[in-house]
Amino acid sequence: MSQPTGPGAAGATPPRASVVTYKAELRKAIRRNAHDPEVNFLNITAMLDIMTIILVFLLKTLGESSAAVPQSDDLRLPASVIKTQPHQEGVLVTISKTQILVGDDKVLSLPGRESLAQAGVDARHKRGGPNDLFIVPLGNALMSARKTDVAVRRAKGLDPSSSEAIIIADKNTPYRLLIEVLFTLGQSEFGKYHLMVIQSKKLGG
């Protein structure tokens, strides 16, 4: 028995397709299998960049502005309907319920409100007795602050003949104490004051 050898014989390998057909089929298969790349993670790097920059910017603005005035039981700012921007340049004078500060340095402890409302600061801290308005420890602190401020104003190209002060006072500060502080500032060559308030919609807080 002889094995069939002709082209039509059973078990014979079919003829190979041409290279052109093969490549066409391959291209078709690649196209068929190709699918869009899966979004398996969200690329939020750009958003993160923006948010980090906004955060840093806000923190910096908040830190530099006077909006960072600490509000506590010892110091609560009065409310005002004024809408101006808070002034940033000047020597900071803080009058809380218990003390007076120039910048961050405490210069004087204050007695109770009853005593302050009658005669202001203790007579021993005044230049000329209980009726005087000049507070000596505050005046001394302001003299040194004024020296620094003169140099700062010169460097900034501002008029050094008088300085500006930012007054941060508690809303219960009696008028007598306020006037004593303002008078002492006036005597220490501070010619312009900025009274810090919190913006409110209602007159009188």
């Binding site: 005035v69 005002s80 101006t84 921007q85 303002l182 008078f183 010619g191 308030v197 913006q199």
Partner: peptide, 9 residues
């Protein structure tokens, strides 16, 4: 916050 300007008393 805001600030109100004034002068020595």
């Amino acid at each position: 916050t805001a600030s109100i300007e004034t002068a020595p008393p």
